[in-house]
Computed example of a mutant assay.
Amino acid sequence: MLDADKRRRPRRRLFRIGAELDGKLHLAIAVAVFLTLGFAWWAVTFSGLVQPLFLPAPGAVWHRMVSLALDGTLWQDSIISLYRIAIAFALASAMAIPVGILIGCFRVWEAAIEPLVDFVRYMPVVAFVPLTILWSGTGDWQKFLIIWIGTFFQEVLMVMDNVKRVPADYIGLGRTLGLPERRILWRIVLPSALPGIWDTLRISVGWAWTWLVLAELVAATSGLGYRITVSQRFFQTQTIIGYILLLGIFGLITDQVMKALEKVLFRYLSVSR
């Protein structure tokens, strides 16, 4: 009876809210999920339940991607898309972070800026595609603008919330010590809000990937989204699925890199916990 209870305890801990999970077990579960989905994909296509036109086999997708990689198409599309998202996301973040900090700290700026940001962020980004083509043509700047519109306004409000979550006691302590507002901002507010701001960037870069594909699906001559559009015209489902999976891989790598950097940049969080 006691042995049975001991065996049940680890299982119960796994399903406790907020319970820690061993790193190896975390990785094993994640890999198992991907393998299960891959096996299900293979089984469905191998059994013939779905025609290859609608869902090609994993092997067919792999061979198509290898072929595109060998002739340079895959690398060219990836490089141009990575360039576009890097520039556009950097511009959007460089502008959103100071604006978000400003309206998060000062009510007067919140009253002046937040309603406008709220107003614009509910406008669908897709509706701006024709306008951005009219304003900036079909070059890279049009792609930058679409990504900027899709990420800037969301980032501003999330950064604002990160700043507002700084405990008022911290700011009160700074005033008690006689620090001017400028030093309270740089020495107290920003260090406290930075981990949250970094997490905001990690989340919003996922949106940036979405808007990148949208920008490249229309009026583009290069990039991952463009290749998906061209493949659709010729019913090249292997390329479409392969590029979609590649976008997921790029996004996953970006997310994991930012998580790893978070542990390096904000080590004091793990120490305080």
Rank of each mutant, 00 (worst) to 15 (best):
L2R: 14
D3W: 08
D3A: 12
R7C: 02
R9T: 08
P10W: 13
R12H: 07
L14R: 13
F15R: 10
A19R: 08
A19K: 06
L21W: 11
K24G: 15
K24T: 09
L25P: 00
L27P: 02
A28F: 12
A28E: 08
A30D: 13
A32N: 04
V33N: 06
L37Q: 01
L37R: 01
A40D: 06
W42Y: 14
W42H: 12
A43F: 13
A43S: 09
V44T: 14
V44I: 15
F46T: 15
G48N: 05
F54E: 04
L55D: 08
P56G: 03
P58E: 01
A60C: 04
H63Y: 09
M65V: 03
V66M: 13
L70D: 15
T73W: 04
S81P: 04
Y83M: 04
A86L: 15
I87H: 05
A88L: 05
L91A: 15
A92D: 06
M95E: 02
A96F: 02
I97H: 10
I97A: 14
I101L: 15
L102F: 06
I103D: 05
I103R: 03
G104M: 07
F106I: 04
F106E: 05
W109H: 12
W109P: 07
E110H: 08
E110Y: 03
E110V: 01
A111P: 00
P115I: 02
V117D: 08
D118S: 09
R121G: 11
V125W: 09
V125L: 07
V126Y: 14
A127D: 05
V129A: 14
P130V: 00
T132D: 11
W135T: 00
S136F: 15
G137T: 06
T138D: 01
T138V: 14
G139F: 03
Q142S: 13
Q142P: 00
L145P: 00
I147S: 00
I149K: 05
T151Q: 01
F152Q: 02
E155K: 07
L157R: 11
V159R: 06
V159K: 08
D161K: 11
R165S: 13
D169F: 02
I171G: 03
G172Y: 08
G172Q: 14
L177P: 03
L177E: 09
E181P: 00
L185V: 09
I188C: 04
L190K: 04
P195K: 04
G196K: 02
W198C: 05
W198H: 13
L201A: 11
T210A: 08
L212V: 06
A215Q: 13
A215G: 09
E216L: 06
A220L: 11
T221Y: 07
S222C: 00
Y226S: 10
R227M: 08
Q236K: 12
Q238E: 15
I241V: 15
I241Q: 11
L245T: 01
L247G: 12
G248F: 09
G248C: 09
I249E: 05
F250S: 01
L252R: 09
I253S: 02
Q256H: 10
L261C: 14
L261D: 09
L261G: 10
K263H: 15
K263Q: 13
V264T: 10
L265G: 05
L265N: 05
F266V: 09
